[in-house]
């Protein structure tokens, strides 16, 4: 038997009740409205790799991330990290121990640091919360060490977050994530609020740290180029479903799902290679009333009756009837 993957996500589901208040419903005779933010998502992450989830707004990728770390309860399915269930109420005690090994880096470095706290206190918070090191002097030393690690000066600990630029704040957030010696870090759009030159610094730093400490990343992003730079494997999400999971290299050289191909073609062509691209059509439908069958069918050039009626299940990492039936040849091929 092969060892279990570090993180296992099985048939994860999340529904939100987005109904109007009870009184409005009664008066307008409108039914309850349920938003399926995440609908049957399964994937696993091997130790030391970077698994990326990409998708556009409303795809449910951030919701998955929050459920994986336990910030959001699940509506169905299971998350297992290091053989400990994040969802089974019986494993509460084990989960508490798991928590220090699992941290998160958020999108907005302006909101992810408490503006009233000095940076050293922010970084020391997980150290104190998990009792990583004892004694005030050791904590101070450890904070200084962490600041140095992420490319800041130990004296920067005295400053408040507003005295830093966005990139430096994200460094502080990374130092906080590392403070408890975490080895699994969920990164929710960690660079999408940053400028490109700063984004490069942060991405490089994250790769260096991964190499140094053998970190495992779950990397959430809407930017395919960033994902290409970071990920070992990639999952593409569309309207709460995982439509394709592939090795990163394969995803970019041989995208399989029509949506993946469309996403790739939508990325602006910086090299101006003049590569032929299929023009993108349509927009993401309202997730409250998703299309029947395969939710991508209204925008898909390969859709047929079966796609409109039947939701495709993932086979070999692709959830697409056309791919399974070999109908992809009909798709306009880039010259």
């Amino acid at each position: 038997m092969s060892p279990r993957p570090y993180v296992e996500v099985t048939d994860l589901k999340k529904v939100f009740d987005v109904s109007k208040p009870w009184l409005n419903r009664v008066i307008e005779r409108s039914p309850k409205q349920i938003l399926k933010a995440v609908d049957g998502v399964s994937f696993d992450i091997r130790k030391g790799e970077t698994f990326a989830l990409v998708g556009e707004s409303g795809s449910g990728k951030s919701t998955v991330a929050k459920m994986v770390v336990g910030l959001l309860g699940v509506s169905g399915g299971e998350v297992t990290i290091d053989n400990i269930s994040m969802t089974d109420p019986a494993q509460r005690a084990q989960r508490a121990r798991l928590r220090r090994k699992m941290q998160m880096i958020f999108q907005d470095p302006y909101a992810s640091l408490n503006p009233r706290w000095r940076v050293d206190r922010i970084i020391a918070e997980p150290i104190r919360a998990f009792n990583v090191v004892e004694g005030e002097a050791n904590i101070v030393a450890r904070v200084g060490e962490l600041l140095t690690l992420v490319g800041l000066h130990p004296d920067d600990g005295r400053k408040f977050p507003h005295e830093f630029s966005g990139g430096q704040r994200q460094r502080v957030a990374i130092a906080r994530a590392l403070a408890s010696n975490a080895d699994f870090i969920v990164c929710d759009e960690p660079t999408s609020a940053l400028d490109v030159s700063v984004q490069a610094q942060i991405l490089n730093l994250m790769r260096d740290l991964q190499e140094k400490f053998g970190l495992t990343y779950l990397f959430i992003s809407h930017n395919l180029a960033v994902v290409r730079h970071m990920a070992t494997r990639i999952g593409v999400m569309y309207l709460g479903r995982l439509v394709e999971v592939s090795e990163a290299k394969q995803m970019f050289s041989h995208p399989r799902h029509p949506y993946t191909r469309m996403l790739l073609d939508a990325v602006p062509d910086l090299a101006m290679s003049g590569r032929a691209r299929i023009p993108v059509a349509g927009e993401i439908p309202n997730p409250i009333n998703p299309p029947s069958g395969c939710t991508f069918h209204p925008r898909c050039p390969l859709a047929n009756e079966r796609c409109r009626a039947e939701n495709p299940l993932p086979i070999n990492g692709v959830a697409c009837h056309a791919v399974v039936e070999g109908r992809t040849l009909l798709m306009p091929v880039p010259a």
Partner: peptide, 25 residues
């Protein structure tokens, strides 16, 4: 805000978060 979520990830209690993070802000 994300700093409150970060504190929750550290297992800080609801009271601790209210008193130390939310209140000053």
């Amino acid at each position: 805000k994300e700093y409150v979520q970060a504190a929750r990830l550290m297992g800080i209690s609801g009271f601790g978060i209210m008193a130390r993070h939310v209140l000053p802000n």
